[in-house]
Simulated scan of single mutants.
Amino acid sequence: MNNSFLIAAGAALALGGCVGNQNGSTTETATVTPELTQVWKTDTVFTGSESTLYDPAADIIYVSNGNTKAGDKDNDGFISAINTDGTIRDLKWVEGNLHAPKGMAILGEKLYVTDIDEVKIIDIASATIEKTIPVEGAVFLNDAATDGQQVYFSDSRTGNIYALATDGGYSVVSSDNKGVNGLECYDGHLYSLDGEGLKKFSKDGEYTQEVINAEVTGGDGLVILNDSTFVASRWHGEIFFIRGSETTVLVDTQPEKSNTADIGFVPSQKLVIVPTFLKNEVAAYQLAY
Score class of each variant (00 low, 15 high):
Asn213Arg: 06
Val272Ser: 07
Leu183Cys: 03
Trp235Asn: 15
Gly218Thr: 11
Asn181Val: 07
Thr247His: 02
Ile7Pro: 05
Glu184Asp: 10
Leu222Asp: 02
Gly168Ile: 11
Thr128Val: 10
Ile224Glu: 01
Val63Ala: 09
Ser51Ile: 12
Ala58Phe: 01
Tyr54Ile: 13
Gly182Leu: 06
Gly71Leu: 12
Thr47Ser: 15
Lys200Ala: 12
Thr248Cys: 12
Lys131Phe: 03
Asp59Trp: 08
Ala163Met: 02
Val139Arg: 01
Asp115Arg: 08
Asp90Arg: 00
Tyr207Gln: 05
Lys199Asn: 14
Thr84Tyr: 06
Cys185Leu: 08
Gly221Arg: 10
Lys257Tyr: 05
Ser202Gln: 03
Ser175Thr: 15
Asn3Ala: 11
Tyr54Val: 13
Leu141Lys: 03
Leu250Trp: 07
Val249Pro: 00
Val45Tyr: 02
Gly182Glu: 06
Trp40Gly: 05
Asp262Gln: 10
Thr114Glu: 12
Asn177Pro: 02
Gly71Ser: 04
Lys73Tyr: 07
Met104Gln: 12
Ala145Phe: 04
Gly24Trp: 13
Thr128Trp: 02
Ser4Asp: 09
Val249Gln: 11
Val251Met: 06
Val272Phe: 06
Tyr285Cys: 07
Lys199Arg: 14
Gln38Val: 06
Gly77Pro: 04
Ala144Ile: 07
Gly169Ser: 14
Cys18Met: 15
Ile116Leu: 14
Gly66Leu: 11
Ala284Cys: 07
Arg234Gln: 15
Ala105Glu: 02
Asp220Ile: 07
Asn23Met: 13
Arg234Asn: 09
Ser171Pro: 00
Trp235Ala: 15
Tyr186Gly: 01
Asp72Gly: 00
Val266Glu: 13
Val19Asp: 10
Ala125Ile: 00
Val211Pro: 03
Ala14Trp: 03
Val216Ala: 12
Gln209Leu: 13
Asn97Leu: 14
Tyr162Thr: 04
Gly237Ser: 13
Cys18Thr: 15
Asp155Gly: 12
Gly71Ile: 06
Ile122Pro: 01
Thr132Tyr: 07
Leu271Val: 00
Val266Arg: 01
Leu111Val: 09
Gln254Val: 14
Gly264Lys: 08
Ala144Gly: 03
Leu91Tyr: 05
Val272Arg: 09
Thr29Asn: 10
Tyr207Asp: 04
Asp252Phe: 08
Ala81Lys: 05
Thr208Lys: 14
Phe140Met: 15
Leu13Pro: 00
Thr68His: 09
Asp115Gly: 03
Glu210Gly: 04
Ala9Phe: 12
Asn213Phe: 05
Phe240Arg: 11
Lys200Met: 15
Ile242Gly: 02
His189Ala: 12
Ile60Tyr: 07
Phe241Cys: 12
Leu111Ile: 09
Gly77Ile: 11
Gly264Gln: 09
Leu193Glu: 03
Asn280Thr: 01
Asp227Trp: 04
Tyr170Asn: 01
Gly71Tyr: 09
Ser64Ala: 10
Leu6Trp: 08
Ile122Leu: 05
Asp194Asn: 15
Ile7Glu: 15
Asn280Gly: 02
Gly237Ile: 14
Glu210Lys: 13
Asp72Lys: 12
Met1Phe: 08
Gly86Cys: 01
Glu206Ile: 10
Pro56Gly: 07
Gly96His: 10
Ala214Gly: 04
Ile122His: 01
Asp204Gly: 08
Ala30Glu: 11
Glu118Met: 09
Ala8Asn: 11
Leu198Gln: 11
Lys257Met: 10
Ile121Pro: 01
Val180His: 08
Ile263Glu: 02
Tyr162Ile: 07
Thr27Ser: 09
Asn280Ser: 06
Tyr112Cys: 00
Thr31Gln: 13
Val223Ser: 02
Phe277Leu: 12
Ala284Leu: 09
Thr114Gln: 13
